[in-house]
């Protein structure tokens, strides 16, 4: 079976965000980019699925040449091949989904793994958008996956519990933490990844619906009140929560 995994290349979550001179994006100076954390779970699940069903795993990433670093990491973990859909401009999730959908179709992948969310714009939508464009089934925020013949059984996190969803191929799964423990790339894997070629092509053009008007820092919070350094501050705390904040 052809398995695909969509991998995004994003600023490390510990990055200090500085607004860039355009006032619409972050200043990239000094920012370290990494594989989107949720996509590591997606890569691991793609590899496990290959181990179960056979076939091959193709990595698809849309972005600039810099994305090759994250692609290499996925290859080093064990993915077989990779495609970089090149575009240096801002794309909204709809436009990303269109290009990913075209490549997934081109690859003929029947199961595609996404992360549940990119930690840059925190949209959590590209998997769903791509699935709808392709007419694939889709289960999001998945913490457990079982493939049993034609059946795909996925557990997703919801408020106050989990939902077990039954669906079928072709399918897009978006990975949540808890789905698996991503493997480390072995030295052999890293060496092998260097020999694998990354196919590069221009991403299919697509229009954005989303226009970013401005990026700004959240208004700084008023400094809080430190009420004391031991239990003697508790009565005052409870009083403030009742009378000032009115939350208890």
């Amino acid at each position: 079976m052809k398995i695909a995994v969509c991998v995004n290349h994003v600023p490390d979550t510990a990055t200090k965000v500085k607004i860039g001179s355009d006032g619409k994006s972050i200043d990239p100076a000094g920012v370290t980019y990494v594989v989107n954390p949720y996509d590591e779970f997606a890569i691991e699940e793609a590899l496990k699925t290959k181990e179960q069903l056979g076939g091959e795993v193709v990595v698809i990433s849309l972005g600039s040449d810099a994305n090759k670093e994250s692609i290499r990491k996925a290859l080093a973990m064990g993915a077989d091949s990779a495609v970089l859909l090149k575009d240096n401009n801002f794309r909204d999730s709809f436009a990303v989904g269109k290009a990913l959908a075209a490549e997934i179709k081109n690859q003929g992948a029947e199961i595609v793994f996404f992360g549940k969310q990119s930690v840059d714009y925190d949209n959590s939508v590209t998997g769903q958008i791509t699935a709808e464009l392709l007419g694939y089934n889709c289960v999001t925020v998945v913490v457990d996956l079982k493939i049993d013949g034609e059946k795909v059984i996925a557990e997703r996190e919801i408020e106050g519990g989990k939902e077990v969803v039954e669906t079928s191929f072709p399918v897009i799964i978006t990975a949540q933490k808890g789905l698996n423990e991503p493997r480390y790339a072995s030295l052999k894997g890293i060496m092998a990844a260097k020999r694998k070629t990354i196919e590069e092509k221009d991403a299919e053009p697509a229009d954005n619906f989303t226009e970013i008007i401005a990026m700004k820092k959240p208004a700084p919070k008023q400094p809080g009140k430190i009420l004391g350094s031991d239990a003697s501050a508790v009565p005052e705390l409870i009083r403030l929560l009742r009378e000032e904040a009115k939350v208890i």
């Binding site: 989303t210 226009e211 008007i213 959240p218």
Partner: peptide
Amino acid sequence: PVYAGKALVDIKLN
């Protein structure tokens, strides 16, 4: 909120 709430964006949808 974007970047885990470290920044905010104002957006318009066309």
